[in-house]
Amino acid sequence: MYKEDLLIEARDVWRSYTRGSETIHALAGMNLTLGRGEMIGIVGRSGSGKTTFLNQVGCLDKPTSGTLKIVGRDVTKLSENELVEFRRDHIGFIFQLFYLIPTLTVKENVEMPLIFARKRDPDKVMDMIKKVELEKNANALPGQLNGGDMQRVAIARALINDPQILLADEPTGRLEHKSRDSIVELFRRFQSEGLGIIIATHDLGLAQMTDRVIELKDGCVIDREESYVFAEVE
């Protein structure tokens, strides 16, 4: 892979917290790369470091030590304000609970990041809504949609600012298998346009639909031989 195709390069990333006299290493020497147009699944039990890692990559938090380059930029050197701007330009997020605003229409929910970035563009919003196949629901409120469609709205909102990376934290945890599969199908469509996607999940079935599955334990990547997530299903 050419260097410029690397969207994420994490080398020996640590994230440690102090609780009283105790030090907790939520990440303990994490290594990972994500290429342009690649989709990775990260599995691991609760507390294994999945969400902490997404928070570092998503610039919602800063590593205690290590190297973390996102689209070639060393984000450990950015100030808080620079991180906010960097995040908005390069990274989209989706979550298990969707976090749509119930009082805003589909169109308005999708438009929100553009408004924050002062780049209002109604045509772009409608194009994105068409891409996620919700044009008939553009003026609906989230409560009028099913779970799968709500997650489509969240995806559209996450991608409206043209980020290179989408981070998905348990994105199909609340969906039936049919909806889950259609969400993955949608991911693949964006992936083919070059989007890099990381999915953190407990659902091994979902993870196995990605290009590469990585398992975390105690804050770092473990080999398949050490795996218990796979061992549980094999």
Partner: peptide
């Protein structure tokens, strides 16, 4: 609402 519905990234 019970679930707050705040945007996690803001």
């Amino acid at each position: 609402f019970q679930q707050f519905y705040l945007m996690p990234t803001l």
